[in-house]
Simulated assay, not measured.
Amino acid sequence: MIDAQQLLLFIAAGWLLNLTPGPDVLYIVTRALQNGLRAGLVAGLGIAAGCLVHVGAAAVGVGALLAASSTAFTLLKWLGAAYLLWLGLRLLRARGDGALAGVVRETAGHAAVPVALKEVFLGGFWTNVLNPKVAIFFLAFVPQFIAPGAGNKALAFVLLGVLFTVNAIPVNGLWALAAAWLVRRVGAVQRGMHWLDRVAGLLFIGFGVRLALTDAPAV
């Protein structure tokens, strides 16, 4: 389905995306700071569960769409390439992660508040499921790593999507563990995010160009 080099690239790109702060990371850090480390870890698991919903929906929907016509593939290809290019340019233009720094400042010095872990899990789940950008990312990113000759492309999509989600769990856990460190080093966070955004931006621009040059259906 995918050679070792491509698999390593897929894993590295997934880790880089999960390290780049967005709504999911903000939710994890907020819960960890407000409700303690356990809540932050559970929030990360809820977000991972939400990703699986996007993976399943995308695998079924894209498989059916591409089976319908080659025109559908061409349309999906250009929409996906445009999204990845937009994502890359947005990251290149970002000036550090002000949203993350703001969350850290607001919660610094506050004592942890007890909360039901089920509530935290569901909050993470719905934070991810209701974010349309996650679905768009899976549609644009995962198909590039599926060989055109793969016998069951929908299954290949699901397997790669599950791998992406499983690999995100330790990254989410690291964000929860890092919450206390972030409180004391907001300035360092902003500088680190500045460079991380740029590396991720260049990577996703490259994926966008690669997708635009794809000739054969990849899902």
Results as ranks from 00 to 15, higher is better:
residue 1 M to N: 15
residue 4 A to R: 08
residue 5 Q to M: 11
residue 7 L to V: 04
residue 8 L to W: 14
residue 13 A to Q: 09
residue 17 L to D: 15
residue 19 L to K: 09
residue 21 P to G: 09
residue 22 G to Y: 00
residue 24 D to P: 06
residue 24 D to N: 14
residue 28 I to H: 01
residue 32 A to C: 09
residue 33 L to E: 03
residue 38 R to L: 08
residue 44 G to F: 02
residue 46 G to S: 10
residue 48 A to T: 07
residue 49 A to H: 06
residue 49 A to E: 11
residue 49 A to D: 04
residue 49 A to M: 12
residue 50 G to N: 03
residue 51 C to R: 07
residue 52 L to I: 10
residue 56 G to H: 06
residue 57 A to W: 11
residue 58 A to H: 05
residue 59 A to K: 04
residue 59 A to F: 08
residue 62 V to G: 02
residue 62 V to C: 05
residue 63 G to M: 06
residue 64 A to D: 07
residue 66 L to C: 00
residue 68 A to E: 11
residue 70 S to W: 05
residue 71 T to W: 08
residue 75 L to V: 15
residue 76 L to V: 07
residue 76 L to Y: 04
residue 79 L to R: 03
residue 79 L to E: 03
residue 81 A to G: 05
residue 82 A to W: 03
residue 86 W to N: 05
residue 90 R to P: 09
residue 94 A to D: 05
residue 95 R to I: 02
residue 97 D to W: 03
residue 98 G to V: 10
residue 99 A to T: 07
residue 101 A to W: 06
residue 101 A to M: 03
residue 102 G to Q: 09
residue 103 V to Q: 13
residue 103 V to R: 12
residue 104 V to A: 05
residue 108 A to T: 11
residue 110 H to P: 00
residue 114 P to Y: 02
residue 115 V to C: 09
residue 119 E to Q: 12
residue 120 V to K: 01
residue 120 V to I: 05
residue 121 F to T: 05
residue 125 F to G: 01
residue 127 T to G: 00
residue 128 N to M: 02
residue 130 L to A: 08
residue 132 P to G: 13
residue 132 P to F: 05
residue 133 K to C: 10
residue 133 K to G: 13
residue 133 K to V: 03
residue 134 V to H: 00
residue 137 F to M: 05
residue 138 F to T: 05
residue 140 A to H: 02
residue 142 V to P: 00
residue 143 P to E: 09
residue 145 F to Q: 04
residue 145 F to W: 02
residue 151 G to A: 13
residue 151 G to E: 14
residue 154 A to D: 07
residue 155 L to S: 07
residue 156 A to P: 06
residue 157 F to P: 12
residue 157 F to Y: 15
residue 163 L to A: 09
residue 164 F to A: 08
residue 165 T to W: 01
residue 167 N to R: 13
residue 168 A to S: 15
residue 173 G to L: 07
residue 173 G to F: 05
residue 174 L to T: 08
residue 175 W to S: 10
residue 176 A to R: 02
residue 177 L to E: 06
residue 178 A to R: 10
residue 179 A to M: 04
residue 180 A to R: 15
residue 180 A to S: 15
residue 181 W to V: 11
residue 182 L to H: 02
residue 182 L to I: 07
residue 183 V to I: 10
residue 184 R to S: 08
residue 185 R to Y: 06
residue 188 A to C: 09
residue 190 Q to W: 00
residue 190 Q to H: 02
residue 193 M to D: 10
residue 195 W to C: 09
residue 195 W to F: 13
residue 201 G to A: 11
residue 203 L to E: 01
residue 205 I to T: 00
residue 208 G to N: 02
residue 208 G to W: 03
residue 209 V to G: 01
residue 209 V to T: 02
residue 209 V to K: 00
residue 211 L to F: 09
residue 211 L to S: 11
residue 212 A to I: 14
residue 212 A to V: 08
residue 213 L to R: 15
residue 213 L to M: 15
residue 214 T to A: 15
residue 215 D to W: 07
residue 218 A to G: 06
residue 219 V to A: 11
residue 219 V to Y: 08
residue 219 V to P: 00
